[in-house]
């Protein structure tokens, strides 16, 4: 399988910080679902922003389909931790935004948008302003807005972290179905162990010093049985990883 995303020796620091990410090396195969898991503040969002082209001043090499990443592009769809929906637009217009920017003719555009809104179950809310939606609905709009542009790579920054457990389960399920159908290569940032195991083909473990600790392949059929012993083994392994990270963090403080 071809690798769509390739990181070699990637290091990065914000202007006023020494270094956030160090010598990141991994590649992601086409159509796979990869999670980035690590303790809070270790640089998960930063890494995803690098891949999206939002932070072009990194060292090393990041390539998507063989081309170096230099700036944001419509080929890298991004769903933000804070959703970043446009509050002055309705649900329909939010979802339509990308196609409009890409000069898709009105007729085609409206059909695609309508279908996508139906897919995420918000047809009745098409003409509603964003502020009138619940958290889960906003989440769906954010996903729909990105998915409708059919990006080659889907980047998700903790899209479900602000939701209650039930809504999160439902949306995880939907994301899984969607990935099975459309097969868009997806990178998900999360600090939920369960979310990572349930959804991913691979999990990149990022330690608190901003380097890749390990890349774990999840060799389980999807959809996965959360009560199976294999599933629990993975859970134990990742839990152990996060616990050690927390411990070394505390020792660092002392």
């Amino acid at each position: 399988m071809a690798s769509v995303v390739q990181l070699e020796n990637v290091s990065f620091g914000y202007r006023d910080h020494s270094s956030i990410l160090q010598d990141i090396d991994f590649s992601i195969n086409e159509n796979s679902f990869v999670s980035i898991l690590g303790p809070s503040g270790c640089g998960k969002s930063t890494l995803l922003n690098l891949i999206a082209g939002f932070l072009p001043n990194y060292s090393g090499s990041i390539q998507i389909e063989g081309k170096p990443v230099k700036k944001p592009s419509k080929d890298q769809g991004f769903v933000f931790q804070d959703l970043a929906l446009f509050p002055w637009l309705t649900v329909f217009k939010n979802v339509e935004f990308g196609l409009r920017m890409q000069n898709i003719p009105k007729g085609t555009r409206e059909v695609k948008v309508r279908d996508m809104i139906e897919l995420v179950g918000l047809t009745a809310y098409s003409s509603f302003p964003i502020s009138s939606l619940s958290g889960g609905m906003k989440q769906r709009v954010a996903l729909a807005r990105t998915l409708v542009t059919e990006p080659g790579l889907l980047l998700l920054d903790e899209p479900f972290s602000a939701l209650d457990a039930q809504t999160r389960d439902v949306l995880q399920e939907e994301l899984l179905t969607l990935h099975n159908n459309v097969k868009t290569t997806t990178i998900l940032v999360t600090h939920s162990i369960d979310e990572a195991i349930y959804l991913s083909d691979q999990i990149v473990l990022l330690s608190k010093n901003g380097s890749v600790k390990e890349i774990v392949n999840i060799d389980l059929e999807k959809p996965r049985d959360r009560s199976s012993s294999h599933y629990n083994e993975y859970q134990r392994k990742l839990y152990e990883f996060l616990r050690n990270e927390r411990q070394s963090l505390n020792e660092g403080v002392i």
Partner: peptide
């Protein structure tokens, strides 16, 4: 919010369209 600008850019908005929309 920086994320609004980034969201628009990753949806394909550039130069004057970014300014207007």
């Amino acid at each position: 919010p920086a994320s609004h600008i980034r969201a628009a850019q990753s949806l394909g908005a550039k130069s004057w369209k970014l300014a207007i929309y």
